[in-house]
């Protein structure tokens, strides 16, 4: 009898411990899933729930406040999810709060996140309210974009490969630049020349700077040219006149050109003078005759000097010249 009671106590203890452990585990798990706490139901509508399942956590500002209790299609596009949220937390969730579906880490399960909306709205949610949702870019969408990017990258790589091959073969400007040693040498020499030119320019600029610094802005011509506004206006007038003169010269030149054209074409007296050989000969003979006549006239004049009628006049003239010379 005593032994039987001992068995009873030991078995009873064993059963109690086992049962308590089972109940404790169920209680803690239930607590985590907000089964034993007072809850309210909130709803949110999404077009894509990205693999969300019933039992997934609901978080408000990063704190677990409930679980997803129901997921149902309400029409062709929209899915309504029912959220069981702790009643004691519900007063912090305002009616303009926003829900979005996220992932618990990179490899974690999906969670529904509730974030506060506009702070000015102070009305808290109540059971049965629908919270507006925000659909983030899903993994499928990201993969789709990535796929397009990959295709583009493949095309780019292909083109780049062709370009590289052409460059390596020495085709095209870039290929020539890279493969032609003569061109490289020329370029190097050009660069050296450019470098020298740059150095010379630098030296020149330095000198010019020095000259400019040495310019006396009050007295020198360059300074007057650079700084005197009156001289500038005068110069402007000079340039204006010069321009005017050049226009006049231009018109004269044009006239002369026309005149020369006329001459060349055989019109006018001058052309007659230049082109007519007979006239030229006549003029030559006339000139010879004039020369002879002049020589004879000189002889006559000399004879006149010695004539008694004119001798007095010539002597008077010599005296006058002598006086002027003194």
């Amino acid at each position: 009898m005593g032994k039987s009671n001992s068995y009873k106590a030991k078995v009873g203890l064993f059963v109690v411990i086992g049962t308590v452990l089972l109940i404790a585990i169920l209680y803690f798990v239930g607590m985590r899933q907000h089964i034993f706490s007072s809850n309210i139901q909130l709803y949110s509508i999404f077009e894509n729930v990205n693999g969300l399942q019933t039992g997934n956590n609901v978080r408000y500002s990063g704190i677990d406040v409930g679980t997803v209790s129901k997921i149902e299609m309400i029409d062709e596009r929209n899915i309504r999810i029912q959220l069981m949220v702790e009643d004691k937390i519900s007063r912090f969730i305002k009616k303009d709060a926003i829900t979005f579906i996220g992932s618990d880490g990179l490899v974690g399960s999906m969670v529904v996140n509730i974030v506060p909306g506009n702070e000015q709205n102070t009305t808290s949610v109540s059971s049965g309210d629908t919270i507006q949702s925000y659909s983030k870019v899903g993994t499928d969408d990201m993969l789709s974009t990535l796929s397009t990017t990959n295709e583009n990258a493949a095309l780019l790589t292909e083109d780049l490969l062709k370009i590289t091959q052409k460059i390596l073969q020495g085709k095209g400007t870039l290929g020539t630049l890279l493969s032609d040693t003569l061109l490289a040498r020329d370029i190097r020499q050009s660069l050296i020349a450019l470098k020298n030119a740059t150095q010379s320019t630098s030296t020149l600029v330095t000198r010019v700077n020095a000259i400019i610094e040495q310019v006396n802005y009050n007295e020198s011509t360059a300074a007057v040219l650079l700084s005197d506004t009156i001289s500038a206006s005068q110069m402007k007038a000079v340039f204006f006149n010069l321009e005017k003169s050049s226009k006049g010269i231009n018109s004269v030149t044009q006239n002369l050109e026309e005149y020369l054209t006329e001459i060349k074409s055989g019109k006018g007296t001058f052309n007659h003078f230049t082109q007519d050989e007979a006239l030229s000969k006549n003029i030559d003979s006339t000139m010879v005759n004039i020369k002879e006549a002049a020589e004879k006239l000189n002889a006559n004049m000399e004879a006149l000097k010695h004539n008694f009628l004119f001798r007095r006049y010539f002597k008077k003239q010599e005296r006058q010249q002598k006086r002027e010379a003194d």
């Binding site: 089972l22 585990i25 169920l26 803690f28 798990v29 239930g30 607590m31 985590r32 899933q33 039992g55």
Partner: peptide
């Protein structure tokens, strides 16, 4: 540790196992 264990567990783990 036990918080994380109870977070991960659900009734669908305990009841079928029992």
């Amino acid at each position: 540790y036990f918080n994380q264990v109870f977070d991960a567990l659900s009734f669908s783990d305990i009841i079928p196992a029992t």
